[in-house]
Design a protein around this nucleic acid. Structure first.
Length: 804
DNA sequence: AGCACGCCGACT
DNA sequence: GTCGGCGTGCTC
């Protein structure tokens, strides 16, 4: 009897986005399982694949069937649930099945491909240049030839069958290793070597002498440098002489570097216990119910999560907690670790590939029962999930921006259905979609109106910057804000200043002709960075020095405009000379861990003012913060996005929540040019429901979610005409296929009409219920993939886009 | 996607 | 005559 494995191969392309049948060699039949990774021959090369089914017959002619060449996992890496979820994702987000499978695994388990050139004949028959390369070994990585410019010679040798090229599959993830030095056991040999070394090489002699006393030991190079008083150069020479050898030794990453103090349950308010009881009931009844936990900032949502998790754990089940990447601070994760100790795994982008792999393995092997992580943690390979929690449910980071374009909330709901467990969506400012569902009783609404410690919400003052301008105040600080800052500085309390920078960064302009420095590849003005006097494109990374004269008119009246954090920092220094300011933006948080360090420093009182962009809006919870200033509330309001008002309201509410979370009362100053806008007005009292009503009305009027679903189709090409032409073709085709109930808007040029030298057009579909939509879009993708792709067109479909 | 096969123009 | 351009088609 033949055993056949159906394999999804690691090739993201339309014609191969289906299972291929492979025969399973006899020695593998007992151990191969669904969800295992395998190496398989595919056409002329070898690729990685996932076993999605095992059966005993096949429709494929036997002569076509090749055998699996290697089984990579003794334990399958994907469960049956994940394979099913991948199929759902493929259809739901229109992506390749392989992409859906890969996104569920840590990148360490993905494949790395290399090409190896094998020598097939005697080395002497080769041209000189090639002989050099093969001198050390008969198998050489192809990139060595590329580096040495030997591709022509290599091609020749290939034609003459003197060498062959082999595709090999490697694992990306590796066990962490350190380089150590193994000193030879043979003292005699060390003495011989000592003899050989010329008397001029004093350091080398010294090192070998030292080695004679440490024969056979394995030591790190650093220790040797220190003890023998040598350098890496000397050690290298001595190793070449054969006195010692470099070896790799495995070490294990220590995830729990610091012990945490266990904490106990906090007592709950009536609102909290009522919410908790309802969730507990759903857990007991194994109901896949979705709860929307709507609680003002500081109302103690986290404590509800913690006690829910305790309940789930007591039932022997596991819990998944999702938080937005940006608020995944040590402060947040500490709370979970301090309650559940070593039962917790943490997953976020700050971890190295290896660390992520280690955390994933802890989940996979059942060593932990709780995972706290960003978006991708929704795929945590638990097999008995008891609860899934999405904190800050409205955050746009829960949607992945590239393929597979999934939303963690949708995946969570799917998994909850599979495991028959509840989901908690928590937020102070729920997304309109979720709140609308709660109103329609699709989700169960749980409300926490009061702050847990009964602190009053901070007093919010809205300052009309137009009045300031009339008063002759042209700075970016209103009089009121300046006064408030002074007061706090005197009282030694802390201040957070928030600069809503999106689309409002510094640019460089010529004052004579008005030319603004633009990116060469994108239709975007360059952002000025004072630190290195450079102008940078935030989309493609293009960078130039600030020119001395205008490239258009050669005038030297060239200067930068706009309000970046750096500029605010300078002005702060002028206004408050003694104040210690910490700046947090992309520039100061680039390196790993710097984000945490800065927050820690601020928490420890090392600065008076924290100045930053979006990234400081969340998770910041220090008792000494009593003033929050929003420098320009409206910048996010005027973005060409139907969610602009919602985003602004969320942001202002979120930021205001940073002040006065503990004993000291908080104050918030919001500066704006449009104080009459409802998003700003209603954020003053953190009045969610009135805002919800207003905004829903707008959405209804304009035909946006949650009343309609959206699909965004983007077409790009190096040539404007081609991009426009094919965007038109796509729209034309969709019009002919879809019913009149779907409104098709476009094609129009995208918000950023050129990115990385590609012109971009888009078209927006609005629809209510349209069963034919997905199949029609799949058809469009088919047309694109079979014909348009060759012409250099790039087409993407984003269902439920975040931004338009 | 990547790679081989295969059919036409410009060179040793 | 051969080398190499890239159009076409297949991958279990």
């Amino acid at each position: 009897m033949i055993t056949v494995a159906q394999v999804i191969v690691d090739v993201a392309a339309y014609p191969v986005d289906r299972p291929f049948d492979y025969s399973v060699p006899a020695e593998m039949t007992q151990i191969i399982e669904i969800g295992s990774r395998v190496k398989v021959p595919f056409g002329p090369r070898n690729v990685l694949g996932f076993v999605v089914a095992i059966k005993n017959e096949t429709d494929v002619p036997l002569e076509k069937i090749k055998p699996v060449s290697q089984l990579l996992d003794f334990e399958p890496v994907l469960t049956a649930e994940m394979l099913e979820l991948a199929k759902w994702l493929k259809n739901e987000t229109i992506c390749y099945e392989i992409d859906a499978l890969q996104v569920m695994l840590p990148s360490a388990l993905r494949a790395k491909y290399e090409k190896i050139v094998n020598l097939q004949t005697d080395i002497e028959v080769l041209p000189r240049a090639l002989q050099e390369v093969f001198r050390t070994a008969p198998h050489v990585n192809l990139n060595v030839f590329e580096k040495n410019n030997l591709l022509t010679e290599l091609k020749q040798a290939l034609n003459n069958k003197q060498v062959s090229i082999e595709n090999i599959v490697k694992q990306k993830g590796k066990v962490k290793e350190v380089r150590k030095v193994q000193i030879t056991q043979d003292v005699q040999k060390l003495m011989e070597i000592h003899q050989q070394i010329s008397n001029r090489a004093k350091k080398q002699k010294q090192l070998v002498e030292w080695m004679q006393n440490h024969a056979g030991e394995v030591i790190t190079p650093e220790v040797i440098y220190k003890e023998a008083g040598t350098s890496s150069q000397v050690l290298k020479s001595v190793v070449e002489l054969g006195a010692a050898a470099f070896v790799q030794e495995e070490v294990f990453r220590d995830p729990f570097a610091k012990e945490v103090q266990k904490t106990k349950f906090l007592s709950l308010t009536d609102e909290q216990s009522s919410a908790l009881n309802q969730i507990m009931a759903a857990i007991d009844d194994k109901q896949p119910e979705t709860f929307l936990l709507h609680g003002v900032t500081g109302s103690g949502k986290t404590e509800v999560y913690l006690q829910t998790i305790a309940k789930v754990l007591s039932k022997g089940k596991e819990a998944i907690v999702l938080v937005p990447e940006i608020s995944l601070t040590p402060q947040m994760t500490e709370r979970f670790r301090s309650r559940f100790g070593e039962m917790v795994a943490v997953m976020h982008s700050g971890l190295s590939v290896g660390e992520k792999y280690d955390e994933w393995r802890k989940i996979h092997q059942g060593k932990v029962k709780v995972v706290v992580g960003a978006r991708s943690a929704v795929f945590a390979p638990f097999e008995n999930v008891g609860i899934i929690i999405l904190d800050e449910e409205h955050e746009s980071t829960y949607k992945q921006e590239d393929s597979p374009r999934y939303h963690a909330r949708d995946v969570a709901l799917w998994r909850a259905g599979y495991h028959q467990c509840p989901v908690i969506l928590g937020s102070a400012t729920p997304s309109l979609e979720s709140f609308a569902r709660a109103k329609k009783n699709v989700y169960k609404l749980l409300t926490l109106k009061d702050r847990a410690l009964k602190q009053s919400l901070p007093k919010v003052e809205i300052v009309d910057m137009r009045d300031e301008l009339k008063k002759g105040n042209r700075s970016m600080f209103s009089q009121s804000l300046v006064e408030s800052i002074h007061t706090r500085l005197e009282k030694n309390e802390q201040i957070v200043l928030f600069l809503n920078r999106r689309g409002y960064s510094s640019f460089v302009m010529c004052r004579d002709c008005g030319t603004v420095l633009q990116c060469e590849n994108c239709d975007i003005s360059l952002t000025y960075h004072r630190k290195n006097e450079k102008c940078k494109c935030h989309y493609c990374g293009y960078e130039i020095h600030v020119p001395k004269t205008c490239p258009q008119c050669q005038s030297d009246h060239i200067r930068f405009f706009g309000t970046g954090t750096q500029k605010v920092e300078e002005e702060l220094a002028k206004l408050f000379p003694g104040a210690r300011v910490l700046r947090m933006d992309v520039d100061t948080t680039r390196t790993k861990g710097s984000h945490e360090q800065l927050l820690q420093a601020f928490g420890d009182g090392e600065a008076d003012i924290l100045l930053g962009t979006q990234m400081i809006a969340k998770g910041l919870d220090y008792p000494n913060i009593t003033l929050v200033g929003v420098l320009s509330a409206d910048t996010s309001l005027h973005l060409p996005d139907f969610r602009a008002a919602e985003k602004t309201f969320q942001l202002l509410t979120q930021v205001s929540g940073r002040a006065g979370r503990h004993e000291k009362p908080g104050e918030v100053v919001v500066q704006t040019y449009t104080p009459e806008h409802y998003a700003i007005e209603l954020s003053q009292a953190q009045d969610y429901e009135p805002f919800y009503e207003r905004e829903m009305h707008m959405r209804h009027h304009a035909g946006y979610p949650p009343y309609y679903y959206l699909a965004l189709i983007q077409v790009s090409h190096e040539d404007v005409l081609m991009a426009a032409d094919y965007a038109g073709k796509a729209v034309e085709w969709l019009r002919s296929q879809l019913s009149f109930k779907v409104s098709i808007i476009g094609p129009t040029a995208s918000g950023i009409s050129r990115l990385q030298n590609r012109y971009r057009y888009q078209c927006l579909l609005k629809y209510k219920v349209e069963p034919d939509l997905i199949p029609t879009l799949l058809q469009l993708i088919k047309i694109y993939r079979s014909n348009w792709i060759k012409k250099g067109i790039n087409l993407t479909i984003d269902l439920d886009p975040n931004m338009i």
